[in-house]
Structure formats: structure tokens, C-alpha cells
Write a protein that binds this DNA or RNA. Structure first.
Lengths: 215, 215
DNA sequence: ACTCATGTTGACCAAACGGTCAACTTAAGT
DNA sequence: ACTTAAGTTGACCGTTTGGTCAACATGAGT
């Protein structure tokens, strides 16, 4: 255990660790923190409950780990643009990414929603610092675009809220949407339909033109 | 107890009944069905737990009662319009109602969201029948307006989803919105700001003109 | 004043909860 | 083959859970 330390510190550890994390993500997403039991997570992971506690000291630690993984993945996946970029392109790309994320990994948004609904006890600090900072930066870029007359002037923060809400809706309210549309699950064609209408309405709403309508 | 039967069957019963229902609404909204304990509801209501069971046979019955009251109130408050009405007026009024509802009674939307996130076990039937029927009717009206050239053609169902998501966002994600805006609570001026931007973006997005921009 | 329906509640129960631990099996370095 | 670290797990503990019940208090009709 000297040379191989970097190669595969512990193959089995990482395997089970991720297995538990994935199971926990699903269970927590369905019933929130308080509503989820370690037993349910253990069963979903196919392991005895005591084994979960070998990898995670307690329920809260597991929950925080799941939450953090989601936030990291979200921050990697999207959201970097500058005032030099084209407003339409940026918004189109951002909305498309969010829709894909919502449809393909609805658990993540559901868990996040659950956390926020219950008062965000675990991530209030994150929202108050990192997230607010991110929103400020992007809002400033929106504002510059509006000042330049590139888009219609609307409150930048609330514009971002509109993008978040319309896209995440397809994750959080997945059950309702599918029941209303009489579908079993989202299909690839749905991603496009959703992206298209959300993009079209919002972009047109702020005086922009979707790329497929240009020229 | 013959003549007074209609007057006030039991004043004390109704008082406690509503007290418990309100307490349950808050608690269920925060932590969902599984995450809420009868004890927490009892404490919120200021009654011993056993007293709750005098009015509601069990947890599920109480939960269903709370849910049903919400659905009834929602169906009363809004959503009735016909193809003869003016599209802009209808959408404006509908959005304004939903925003007011979200800001003033966020518990209700939060509880509904919780239920849907956890797979809508208690209201899947309601969604599949009544709600879907309602959506079909309103979508048909949207479609007629679009066919008449009164508004831009977009998928009517998804347009409704956009209205629902943008407005309910301010209830479900209330904590996040307030933390990001650095506010303690929604103020009357917020209702107007939110209504204004949501209405403006969506109406413009579907080729309509908000009333305050006309002429 | 008496009566009976209505409402109240502490004490209690079985089940499920989060979490611990010692005994055990498996994997890996020498 | 031996040793030690890593991983597994059934049994168990104290607490909380939803729910019951018998004893009690209070209301209203006569």
C-alpha cells in the first residue's frame, strides 16, 4: 500500500460510497430529509443499514454530502458567460442546459427543492453567499446588455428566477407534468419541445430573437 | 339540539377543527407528509396530541383534509374564462391572482409541491382526471385564440406550465428568493414587481401586449 | 339539579427510528 | 501461510413515531 496508493486507494470503498450516495439522492429527493429513513436508503442501495454507517457517520453527514455533490455538479455544468457574449446565445444555451438537467436528473432538483421548501436549513449559508454572489455577477451582465439596448429592460434577478422556475419545473413537478401529458417519462423529443417554448417565450419576452428565427 | 342544529352545530368543534387544519397545513408544508409528526402539528395547534385524534382519525385523513381544502380554494379563486374573453386581460388577471396567492399563502403551494415531488401518491387521481380536464379546456381556448391570430402559436399546455412555474416559484422557493434579495418577507410592492415582470415577459413572449403598455 | 352528548387528556402500546458495537469475513502486503 | 487493515452485519439500545383508551371535564337541553 505504497505504490498503489494513488492508483486505486480503495476500489471497493469508492464503489460503495457512490452507490450509497446515489441511493440517498433518490430517497432524499422523494421524501426530504426528515421524511427519509436510513433504512429506506439502505434498502435502495442493497446494503444492510449498519453498512451505511460505516461510510457515513450519520444521516445529516450523508445528506450534506449528497447536497454538496449536487451543488458542485450544478456549478460545473453551466453558468459561465461574460458581457462580451451574445445575449441570445447565452440565454439559449443556459436554458437548454437547465432543461436537459431537469429532465435527465430530476432527483437533484427535487432534493434541492425539498431543502428550500423546508426553509433551507442546510444551505441557507450557501444561498446567502456563493449563490447571491453568482446572481449579482450575472445580473450585472444582464444590466449591461439592457443599458446597451441589446435587450428590453427588466429586473435581472427576477428574469433569472423566471429561467430557473420554468426549467426546474420539469424536474420538481415531473410527476404532475407527465400525468397531465399522459406520458410515462420524458423522451428526447420532449427536451426539444420544452427548450423551444421556454426559450422562445422568454427570449421574445425580453426583446431577443431565438437563433432558429433569425434571418 | 333541534332548532339550533343549523345555527351553530358545534361552535367549539369548528373552531378547533380549523385550528388543527391550519397548523397541519404549515407543518406539512414544511416537511411533507412523511417528515411531519402528529406531535409537531399538535404543538403548533397548541393542543395535546390525543386531541388531534379526536377530530381526525389518523395522520393520512388529516393530510387529505388539508390537501382537499387547498384544492377547493384554488379552484374557487381563479381560472374561469372563455374564448370570448380578451387574451391579454385573461392572462394578466390569471397571473396576478397566482402571484398574489403564492406570496400571501406560500404554505399551500409548498404543500402541493411537496406532494407532487414525492410522486403525488395522494392526488395522482385528481391530477389525472379533474386537473387534466381543466387543462384541456383552457388549452382549447388558448388554441382558438392562436388560430384566430390573437396570439403567437405556442404549445398551450406548456404555456400553462410556464405560468404555473413562474408564479408558484415565489411560494415554493420563497426562502431562496428572500435570501437572494436580502429581504425578510414579501412586501406589497413585491407583488406588483413580480406580477409586472412575469406578465410582461410571458405576454410579450406570446405576442400580446400588457394593458399598461397599450396605446 | 340532573343527564347525556361532546370534548379533553395523561398514560400507554407496538412499531419504526437513528445510531452503536462486537464478532465476523474478506482483501491485500509480505 | 501469516498478519493486518478494510469491510460487513446481526443484534441491540434509547428515543420518537402514529395511534388507542379509559378516566375526566365541560357543554347544552330539560
Amino acid at each position: 500500500m505504497k505504490a498503489s496508493e494513488n492508483n486505486r486507494k480503495s476500489h471497493i470503498r469508492e464503489k460503495n460510497y457512490l452507490n450509497i450516495l446515489n441511493a440517498a439522492e433518490e430517497v432524499f429527493a422523494q421524501n426530504g430529509f426528515k421524511g427519509s429513513s436510513m433504512n429506506a436508503i439502505a434498502e435502495k442501495a442493497g446494503l444492510p443499514k449498519a453498512n451505511i454507517h460505516y461510510y457515513f457517520s450519520n444521516k445529516m453527514a450523508l445528506y450534506m454530502e449528497v447536497l454538496q455533490r449536487i451543488l458542485v455538479e450544478w456549478n460545473q455544468g453551466l453558468g459561465e458567460f461574460t458581457e462580451q457574449d451574445d445575449p441570445s446565445e447565452v440565454l439559449e444555451h443556459y436554458i437548454a442546459s437547465k432543461v436537459l438537467q431537469a429532465c435527465q436528473k430530476p432527483h437533484q432538483s427535487k432534493l434541492f427543492a425539498s431543502e428550500v421548501i423546508s426553509g433551507a436549513p442546510a444551505i441557507a449559508d450557501y444561498i446567502r453567499t456563493e449563490m447571491r454572489q453568482w446572481l449579482r455577477e450575472k445580473s450585472a451582465i444582464f444590466q449591461i446588455w439592457m443599458d446597451k439596448g441589446l435587450m428590453k429592460p427588466v429586473d435581472p434577478s427576477h428574469l433569472m428566477f423566471m429561467i430557473w422556475s420554468t426549467t426546474q419545473h420539469y424536474a420538481d413537478y415531473q410527476t404532475q407534468v407527465l400525468l397531465l401529458l399522459n406520458q410515462q417519462e420524458y423522451e428526447t423529443s420532449d427536451y426539444e419541445t420544452i427548450t423551444r417554448i421556454v426559450t422562445e417565450v422568454i427570449l421574445t419576452g425580453v426583446g431577443l430573437t431565438p437563433s432558429w428565427k433569425k434571418q
